[in-house]
Design a protein around this nucleic acid. Structure first.
Lengths: 144, 144
DNA sequence: TATAACTCCGGTTCTCCGGTCGGGTTTGCA
DNA sequence: TGCAAACCCGACCGGAGAACCGGAGTTATA
């Protein structure tokens, strides 16, 4: 039930991209990695996955980098974690050849997971960006 | 997000114990393991954990075995997985010394997890047993 | 009281995967 | 043409989950 650092990194990176959304300027891996202190070599792989899932797009060559493929409010957190965690399409067909006990358990578990996924589905990247800005505002006010 | 075999085994075992609840007869590890085909040596450890968490109690010696410590309807599925997965009390205090971005993400994640836990909290072992019986009934009717 | 049937406890092994690197290839801008 | 980036691929490491085992402690029962 723990948030894997994989997903956290991805979210952090997208947050960065999301706030720079609008001006066509792509951001480099290095920038993002440094700003959120994520191992850049690792971030590279994550962004590759996000690109294959159509969440970000990349621009090669000098002055290249990454941009969001869609606007922040049409990217749900579920999109992100599901693609990064790899439980989207084509998975474990032999996952449910169980006994009646097993299937009942699987069923309940499925319900619980569904509940969590619903929460993630309702939150968009835009929401995150906003919350983040709000929080920074508050933090600033309380700063001595 | 996947149900660990650990938790699945535990649930399976408790299901077994739950259905035999009432008559004071304890069940042996071997029996449970054989009936649900779980590696018995492994099940032993899981039951030990459940015992320490006060979910089952054990009777040593000849004719010994395991029994539920409370009745099935006062054991929630959350009790089980949280104790087996080990995220009950005393865990990672340094889990949130993050940046403002990080804390926002953690917050949302927490909400999602909470939703899942609520589902588990509402389901008792008794519910599982009932569902299981119902399912077996249905399966029997459809049996050629 | 002896014995068999159990739980209990601790280590050990094996496997798998998240996370990490290094090196090399393409692409595009200046 | 040179440089700066994304891109690809494969190997490595450590730790956690999963499973195995030997032996010691406990108890009902004959």
């Amino acid at each position: 039930m723990e948030l894997s650092s994989k997903s956290e990194y991805a979210l952090l990176a997208l947050l960065e991209l999301g706030r720079g959304f609008g001006q066509g300027e792509p951001m480099q891996i290095r920038q993002i990695a440094a700003h959120q202190n994520i191992p850049d070599r690792y971030l590279e792989q994550l962004l590759a996955t996000l690109r294959r899932a159509g969440i970000v797009r990349s621009q090669r060559g000098a002055k290249g980098g990454y941009l969001l493929a869609r606007s922040p409010w049409q990217i749900t957190l579920y999109d992100v974690v599901s693609c990064i965690e790899g439980f989207d399409s084509s998975k474990e067909p032999p996952a449910t050849p169980q006994t009646s006990e097993g299937s009942v358990i699987a069923e309940v578990w499925q319900t619980a997971r569904q509940a969590a996924e619903d929460v993630l589905q309702k939150q968009t990247l835009q929401d995150l960006v906003d919350k983040c800005k709000a929080k920074q505002q508050v933090d600033l006010m309380y700063y001595i």
